[in-house]
Every structure is written in C-alpha cells, then in structure tokens.
C-alpha cells in the first residue's frame, strides 16, 4: 500500500478529548455523523461521554425510537464502563402514548445516567402525567455527588 493511503488525516490524530469537545460543540445530530466518517473516528465516537435520544426524529415510528435507544446503549455502553457520563438528554415533546412503555424506558435511562455518574441529566418531556420514577432511583439521584445540572 502506498504511504499516502495509510496516512490518517490530521483530525484523526488529535487527542480523543479534543475530538469529543468538537463533537460536543455541534448539535447531536451532527455529532452522530462522526460514527460513520471512518473507523478511527467511529471508535472515538463510541467513548463520547454524551448520550442523547430525541423522539422528534422518530415521531412517526415510536418503535424505532425504542430500538434506537437499545441499539445505542448496546454499542456504546460497553465502551463506557467506569467512565463518567457528561450528559444524558432525552427529548420527548409529546403527551405519552399509553401503548408504548416509555416510562419504563425513561426510568431505565435515568438509572443508567445515575450509575454512570452523569453530570447533567436533562429530561425534556412534556407529559400530563408525571414520570413515574421509583423512589429508590430518586434517592440515589439526589444523593449523587456528580450531578450538577438536572432539568426535569
């Protein structure tokens, strides 16, 4: 193989923290693009300490939203074990549809955020009924030493 073919681009040689900062400086839907640019950038994407799930991308296909959450956690959580999460954001700007078990999913995500010592947890949820979060998750949430921002 020619040398020019094996050389990686300058951006791929930057420290991971620096690329994570660039990812964090663009909207999440643009940051996702890092995952398909190249193999090097894909592996750096996997350790990006921000998770965002935006239902507005999926409004016509609620099941895709759930499967996307599971896919993301399946691919990215193994790379994140024992590393604090900077931010978890969930956007669901609609009233619940009873047919989908969203509250279970949100509670599950909340627990993931707490276990990963998330600094920011943002639940952007419009709902007539309050999110039914079990008491023990709330307790650990409020006793978290790592949390700096919480937007219910």
């Amino acid at each position: 193989m020619m040398e020019s073919e094996t050389r990686t681009s300058m951006i791929e040689n930057l420290p991971h923290a620096l690329i994570h900062k660039i990812m964090n400086s663009v909207p999440y839907k643009d940051a996702v693009k890092f995952s398909v640019l190249s193999k090097t950038l894909h592996s750096i994407w996997l350790s990006f300490p921000v998770l965002e799930f935006d239902y507005t991308f999926f409004s016509s296909q609620p099941y895709n939203f759930l499967s996307s959450i599971l896919e993301t956690l399946h691919h990215r959580c193994p790379h994140r074990i024992n590393k604090p999460l900077q931010r978890l954001r969930v956007k669901y700007p609609y009233v619940y549809r009873e047919s989908f078990a969203f509250h279970t999913v949100f509670e599950f995500l909340l627990n993931i955020a707490i276990r990963n010592h998330a600094k920011e947890i943002i639940f952007d949820i419009h709902s007539k009924t309050l999110v039914d979060v079990r008491c023990d998750s709330l307790l650990s949430l409020f006793s978290s030493q790592f949390l700096t921002v919480l937007q219910p």
Binding site: K29, V32, K33, S35, V36, H42, D54, F57, F58, Q61, N64, F65, S67, S68, E71, T72, H75
Partner: peptide
C-alpha cells in the same frame, strides 16, 4: 450497518 444504528438521523 452503521447508518441503521441511527435510524432517525440523516447522513
């Protein structure tokens, strides 16, 4: 395969 992991995103 990678694109399928983010079904809601346009690449």
């Amino acid at each position: 395969q990678l694109r399928r992991q983010h079904p809601g995103c346009s690449f």
